[in-house]
């Protein structure tokens, strides 16, 4: 790890000011991607701004048909939240599937979304649950937020403060884990909303998380596994690595989508 200056602001405003003044900054949330990268000397920010002491980045709130989660809420907190379990059980279950207990008790929703790892789970939940990403500067619709692997709409120094999810009528997330890393080799989040179904896929796409319009259309008409029969995603847009080639990933998207719908329907 290279030497760096460590900052620990107690408000979003202070964090933003620090980010504006300092050179070569990184925000530290749970640190589960950033810190290992720094330890391996693959990243060496001059200034690290720890968001862990900012109270306004915490909390979970239900309001009508949305549930809003503070950016620094840990995966375990989301997984165990009574509000989340009641409103969107699929989201709590997804959080419970992230990493291992260590990861879930350090990693945060805001960190995961800002990082936009192509195998992370939260981006799929955001897309399927038509989330709004709230920052210290603006509100960003989820469809505009994720812009390719490790790339988001966030501007330099912009801080995610909250994520607001639409409560669906039915939803589920199924994940096929990479056997080694336990990240999603393919993860599919399906959700039925009043204005139609959403299907979001993580882990599989060569350009990161994506929606599957053909599946959404089919499920909007008939939210049942068999509605997806015959619908396949294009292999040439799939990731290809030693764990899974494009054809296998494309196949798994179909399998996981059907199983997700099955789980959502079974939950009722």
């Amino acid at each position: 790890m290279y030497a760096f200056e460590y900052h620990r602001p107690t408000s979003v405003k202070e964090a933003a000011n620090l980010a504006g003044q300092a050179e070569d900054i990184k925000f530290l949330a749970g640190g589960h991607t950033l810190l290992p990268t720094m330890k391996l000397r693959l990243a060496g920010p001059a200034n690290l701004i720890d968001l862990g002491q900012i109270a306004e980045l915490r909390g979970i709130e239900r309001s009508g048909d949305t549930i809003t989660i503070g950016a620094m809420m840990k995966h375990a907190e989301v997984a165990n939240s009574a509000e989340v379990k009641e409103a969107i059980p699929a989201l709590a279950e997804m959080a419970e599937l992230i990493g291992d207990p260590h990861v879930r008790n350090r990693g945060t929703i805001g960190g995961s979304i800002a990082n936009n790892d192509p195998s992370a789970d939260y981006p799929a939940a955001c897309l399927a649950l038509n989330a709004t990403i709230i920052t210290n500067q603006r509100k960003i619709a989820t469809d505009d937020f994720f812009q390719g692997i490790f790339t988001t709409a966030l501007e330099e120094g912009e801080i995610i403060t909250q994520v607001s999810f639409k409560v669906p009528s039915q939803a589920a997330y199924t994940k096929f884990r990479n056997p080694a890393s336990r990240y999603a080799l393919v993860g599919v989040f399906v959700a039925q909303h009043a204005d139609g179904a959403r299907v979001a896929v993580t882990g599989a796409g060569s350009n990161g998380v994506f929606r599957v319009p053909e599946m959404e259309q089919a499920l909007s008409g008939n939210f049942a596994p068999e509605a997806l029969d015959g619908i396949a995603v294009a292999e040439d847009e799939m990731n290809n690595d030693i764990h899974a080639d494009a054809a296998y990933r494309a196949h798994l998207v179909g399998v996981m989508a059907r199983r997700a719908v099955q789980a959502a329907v079974a939950r009722g």
Binding site: P179, A180, S181, Y183, I242, H243
Partner: peptide, 21 residues
């Protein structure tokens, strides 16, 4: 689960627990 794989140039692809299962 386990397999150590080198690419053609001799880089160990499975050089961490993220890839070596």
């Amino acid at each position: 689960l386990e397999g150590a794989f080198y690419d053609e140039s001799g880089q160990l692809i499975t050089a961490s627990f993220n890839d070596y299962c």
